[in-house]
C-alpha cells in the first residue's frame, strides 16, 4: 500500500508528535521504563544533568534524581514541533518545551519554569518512531519562592 507523500508525511508527523508527548508524560510520571520505551537502545541523551546513553541516564535518574528529595513534581508542555525528514524512517526534530519543576530547598521551596528546546533525531524502528538522540537546549529559566507550600505536596 502506498500513501500519497503529503499524507504519509502527515501521519509520520503525527506519530512523532505523539512520541514527544509520550516522552514528556514518561518524564513527568518519573517512570524509567516508560522513558526507555521511547528511545532506540543505546541512544544518546544529553540533558546536561547526566550525559550518556539513555540506559545510563535512566539509571542515574532512578538512583539519584528520583531519590533526591529536592526534586518535586514536574511538568513538560511540548509545542512548536518542526520536523525535517531525511528519509521515510529518519527525521530531525526541534520542539519547544515549557518545563515546571518544584525544587524543595531548605528553608525555601521554589517554583521553577524553564523555557527550552529539544533537538531530537528520530528513527522509525519496526513501525514505531523512537528517539535515536536527544539534546536539551536551555533558553531561559525563572525561579520564585512558592507562594503556599501546602498547596502542592513536594513528593
Amino acid at each position: 500500500m502506498t500513501l500519497a507523500r503529503p499524507v504519509a508525511e502527515l501521519l509520520a508527523r503525527h506519530e512523532i508528535e505523539q512520541l514527544l508527548t509520550r516522552r514528556g508524560r514518561a518524564a513527568d510520571s518519573k517512570d524509567p521504563d516508560a522513558i526507555l520505551r521511547e528511545h532506540v537502545p543505546g541512544s544518546l541523551d544529553t540533558h546536561g544533568i547526566y550525559d550518556g546513553t539513555i540506559e545510563e541516564f535512566v539509571e542515574y535518574l532512578r538512583t539519584h534524581n528520583y531519590q533526591d528529595k529536592r526534586y518535586g513534581p514536574q511538568r513538560h508542555t511540548i509545542s512548536n514541533v518542526l520536523i525535517e525528514f531525511d528519509s521515510d524512517s529518519r527525521a530531525r526534530v526541534e520542539s519547544y518545551h515549557l518545563a515546571y519543576h518544584r525544587i524543595v530547598l531548605d528553608p525555601v521551596a521554589y517554583d521553577v519554569y524553564i523555557g527550552g528546546r529539544y533537538l531530537d533525531r528520530c528513527e522509525q524502528v519496526g513501525g514505531r518512531w523512537q528517539l535515536s538522540s536527544r539534546q536539551v537546549v536551555y533558553d531561559w529559566s525563572r525561579s520564585t519562592p512558592v507562594s503556599n507550600p501546602t498547596t502542592l505536596e513536594s513528593e
Binding site: T46, G48, I49, D51, R70, Y71, H101, I103, L105, Y110, V112, I114, G116, R117, L119, Q135, V136, V137, Y138, D139, W140, S141, R142, S143, T144
Partner: peptide, 22 residues
C-alpha cells in the same frame, strides 16, 4: 516584566558550562 532570578541550573547545582544554551 521581572528582574532575572536565580537560574534553574544554579539552584540545583548543575554545571552551566555543560548545558546547551539558546
Amino acid at each position: 516584566v521581572d528582574a532575572a532570578t536565580t537560574p534553574y541550573w544554579e539552584l540545583v547545582g548543575l554545571d552551566e558550562a555543560k548545558l546547551l544554551r539558546g
